[in-house]
Design a binder for these strands. Structure first.
Lengths: 316, 316
DNA sequence: TATATTTATGTAACTGGTTACATAATTAGT
DNA sequence: ACTAATTATGTAACCAGTTACATAAATATA
């Protein structure tokens, strides 16, 4: 069974399941060996009851990490075997108070010997291993609690894909993409306005020839994001960041951040004192991106765009 | 959920199951995230097929540690999703050869990216833990392969119970036990003989008063084993080890060994040159115990017992 | 060469859990 | 004081595996 050696970490779930199963199987035999009339799967519930006067189904479930349904079933089985008793709580009609019966307490006595032997067997096992499984499980539980495996994989994916994104300067072949990517989000959230058509249809004359810049983000050769830096005729501001668009199919790959920081870098290289931009508070991810890039909200100015309800600036 | 902290090692199965479950759950979401049309539970089978031209159900099962039934089901599901193909083996009509379909190979391409990200996520996770779960699992698999958990617990039990056994000298109150324990095994395997009754009914006059010794093994105050050292009137032998009996309900606690070595010790203290005994080869555990105590088979001598077919001696 | 054993696979039923949904009792918010 | 939300529990159906048993093909053996 070299599978786990070659398949690597992808099979960790499978591997854990197998180990769990092997241990559970032996656990069954161990209970039989000690002649304690207890099923292994009852143990967590039984243990909780042995160490508490009376507990509700839900309380047990929460403590041992099972679903309440599972606990409910187990309790039912144990009642049938005379190990526990159920009693409705007087002060709360929903609660089903479960307690160990006399027979259950008697079993608990005998169980303690088993606990000792299992404990020392595992102790001995751990002692002959260089890596402590028990501690390792505890750590994983903790680490996964902090940030789930899913989250961690998502982050890795983003990181890897981000490395596959390249930012290149605009050229004729990206004109269609420049228009389409912008039209896509604008018409999703708002309506295309006259000023949009002017800039999107004539990027060269309206942006580049006037001393502006357009950058394109490529993912596997395909343009998936664009961003423009437009020269402003304004005494207060040198450039405007505008027409930033990222394909919705490419969200979550930091493309916006890569484009944004590249454009800011270019502006700095061009000797800009500042950058201005207009947006809408509806576009939360965009606003938060601008924040991360260093932009700050500024008081209202005139704008040709109806959809603009927030204005920001970045001072170098 | 402090359960695992207090319940200790007895709950290791439960704890492993919970961790496994959490990981499996996230695994499902990860497959969804990558849009690879693969169910997590298919992975081990899929992986094996991706790395081998064609495999039989059983071969896959053996390699990934599932039952063949499970593999059979998984293959059926994957066939329905067009990922694999089945084909009867021409040279062996029982074999069902399974291979990846073109679609399956295509999925394999996309899966590789996922493998990379999952691999690095787990790598990163391991790096931030001080105890290496992966290695620990490997070690446990190995150690449990060597000696199962059941075996280890059995050994612990024996050891602990052995420590609770005390060997005490015979006194009047053990006369009944001395008789009953011996009669129990003799009449199970053979028939009580005249010589038996003589010794068992009058231990004082027949054994002790003639310079012999009787030892009793107590487990929780109860006599559970007996053994006699009888002075022999023989030029060759000083003492005979006889009437050794251990309650069948107390087997597997090394009581025989404790009694035997105590009696050998006493004989040595009495200045014996040797010990003689008679037994029957049918009683395998007894013979092997005598061997462990240092007894060797000797040639035939006269004996009052019909059941005797082997004679042994221990030379100091 | 006929028969017994082993091997490959499938079907049915079980197991130890789960989620989804339902219901009744309690608590909170106006 | 009433309605909405929450909590405790149960029932039904599902899930990913298992074992037990059945069958057919191949191999070993007398």
């Amino acid at each position: 069974m070299s599978f786990f050696d070659t398949a690597g970490k992808m099979a960790i779930g499978s591997r854990l399941r197998l180990l769990t199963e092997k241990i559970t199987e032996d656990a069954g035999k161990i209970y039989a060996l000690f002649g304690v009339g207890l099923q292994p799967k009852w143990f967590p519930v039984f243990y909780m009851l042995a160490n508490n006067e009376a507990l509700t189904i839900t309380a047990i479930a929460k403590e041992i990490g099972h679903s309440h349904v599972s606990v409910s079933k187990i309790v039912r089985e144990m009642v049938k075997h005379g190990l526990v008793k159920e009693k409705k709580d007087k002060s709360d009609g929903r609660r089903n108070m479960v307690t160990l019966s006399a027979a259950g307490r008697e079993v608990n006595q005998r169980l303690s010997e088993q606990c000792v032997d299992v404990g020392s067997a595992i102790e001995e096992l751990s002692a002959s291993a260089t890596h402590n499984l028990w501690e390792a499980i505890g750590e994983w539980e903790f680490l996964l609690e902090q940030r789930s495996l899913l989250r961690r994989v998502m982050d890795q994916k983003k990181k890897r894909e981000g490395q596959e994104v390249t930012i290149v300067p605009y050229s004729r072949k990206y004109q269609q993409a420049f228009r389409d990517l912008n039209e896509e989000w604008i018409s999703t959230y708002f309506k295309m306005e006259a000023a949009d058509y002017k800039a999107l249809d004539n990027p060269k004359s309206h942006i580049l020839d006037k001393g502006g810049i357009i950058l394109v983000a490529l993912y596997k050769e395909e343009p998936v994001g664009v961003c423009a830096l437009i020269k402003m005729k304004d005494p207060d501001y040198d450039y405007e960041l505008a027409k930033m668009a990222v394909s919705p199919r490419m969200q979550g790959k930091s493309i916006g951040w890569l484009l944004g920081s590249a454009i800011v870098e270019q502006a700095r290289a061009l000797g800009a004192r500042n950058i201005y931009l207009e947006s809408n508070t509806m576009l939360k991810p965009a606003i938060s991106l601008y924040h991360k890039l260093g932009f700050q909200k500024v008081a209202g100015r005139a704008t040709p765009y109806e959809r603009c309800n927030i204005q920001m600036e970045l001072i170098f």
